[in-house]
Amino acid sequence: MERKYSANNLPMEGGGHRGWYQPHGLPHFDTPEIVQFVTFRLADSLPAWVEDRRETSVEMRRRVESKLDEGMGTCWLANADIALLVEGALLAFHMQRYRLWSWCIMPNHVHCLFNLKDGWRLADVVKSWKSYTAARANRILGRQGVFWQADYFDRYMRSEDQMALTIDDIERNPVKAGLCTHCTEWRWSSARRKLGGGSSDPASNFITE
């Protein structure tokens, strides 16, 4: 069926994948099979002035990534119980709702690279990760209130080279942030959970120690 879009680039009547849409401040691209790089973060991980939406998404993303690596906010994801909870949520529906290629759980944000399976929408997958983990993380912490920041960044891969570079960027994030000296030392990422060599699919090398 032909997709029809309104003047503000939102899908018209009908379900399924949305293509380009902008429900809040950030634009998103929702389509099956395309590999997506997604970043979502804790609610207090950035000061409000960092997210000036008058800037382009590229400029804002670079500034956001730099600020996130400074480890601002409560950094609840540094709690091993909460990091394990988030990691479990990411892995739970691998090869069912999406194919997960790479991920890294930092103290105040999460990076993941995946492509959706047909029938699953980007916003719904990210919402399921965040809603499930927020409720349980708040119980672990003995608190109430907002856990994750409402929106998220996504960028789709245009080539295999870009995808390879993105996997490297994701898995080297703890090194870049000064949290370890080698990416395999970081407990909460796909780098440490991959078996040695042989497979062209990083997701097939996940281990569950």
Rank of each mutant, 00 (worst) to 15 (best):
residue 4 K to M: 13
residue 7 A to F: 07
residue 7 A to L: 11
residue 8 N to S: 12
residue 21 Y to A: 01
residue 21 Y to R: 03
residue 25 G to F: 10
residue 26 L to W: 10
residue 28 H to P: 15
residue 29 F to H: 07
residue 32 P to F: 06
residue 33 E to L: 04
residue 36 Q to Y: 11
residue 36 Q to S: 14
residue 39 T to E: 10
residue 42 L to N: 02
residue 42 L to T: 02
residue 42 L to W: 14
residue 43 A to Q: 15
residue 43 A to N: 11
residue 45 S to Y: 07
residue 45 S to C: 14
residue 48 A to T: 07
residue 49 W to T: 06
residue 52 D to S: 12
residue 56 T to V: 07
residue 58 V to C: 05
residue 59 E to W: 07
residue 60 M to H: 02
residue 61 R to S: 14
residue 61 R to G: 12
residue 62 R to L: 11
residue 63 R to I: 15
residue 64 V to P: 00
residue 64 V to M: 03
residue 69 D to G: 13
residue 70 E to A: 09
residue 73 G to V: 10
residue 74 T to F: 12
residue 77 L to I: 08
residue 77 L to S: 05
residue 78 A to Q: 12
residue 78 A to K: 10
residue 80 A to H: 04
residue 85 L to K: 00
residue 87 E to A: 03
residue 88 G to M: 11
residue 91 L to W: 02
residue 93 F to C: 00
residue 97 R to L: 01
residue 97 R to G: 09
residue 97 R to Y: 11
residue 103 W to L: 06
residue 105 I to L: 10
residue 108 N to L: 03
residue 109 H to G: 03
residue 110 V to N: 02
residue 110 V to E: 01
residue 111 H to T: 09
residue 113 L to A: 05
residue 113 L to D: 01
residue 113 L to R: 04
residue 115 N to A: 10
residue 116 L to K: 00
residue 132 Y to C: 03
residue 134 A to G: 05
residue 138 N to D: 12
residue 139 R to W: 15
residue 142 G to C: 13
residue 145 G to F: 15
residue 151 D to P: 00
residue 152 Y to S: 08
residue 152 Y to K: 02
residue 153 F to W: 14
residue 158 R to G: 12
residue 158 R to W: 15
residue 159 S to V: 14
residue 160 E to C: 04
residue 160 E to R: 02
residue 161 D to G: 01
residue 161 D to P: 00
residue 162 Q to I: 08
residue 164 A to V: 11
residue 172 R to W: 14
residue 172 R to S: 07
residue 175 V to E: 09
residue 180 C to R: 04
residue 181 T to H: 09
residue 184 T to W: 06
residue 185 E to T: 09
residue 186 W to P: 00
residue 187 R to N: 09
residue 188 W to K: 06
residue 190 S to L: 09
residue 193 R to V: 04
residue 193 R to D: 04
residue 194 K to M: 15
residue 196 G to F: 15
residue 198 G to P: 04
residue 198 G to S: 10
residue 199 S to F: 05
residue 200 S to K: 01
residue 203 A to Q: 08
residue 207 I to W: 06
residue 209 E to F: 13
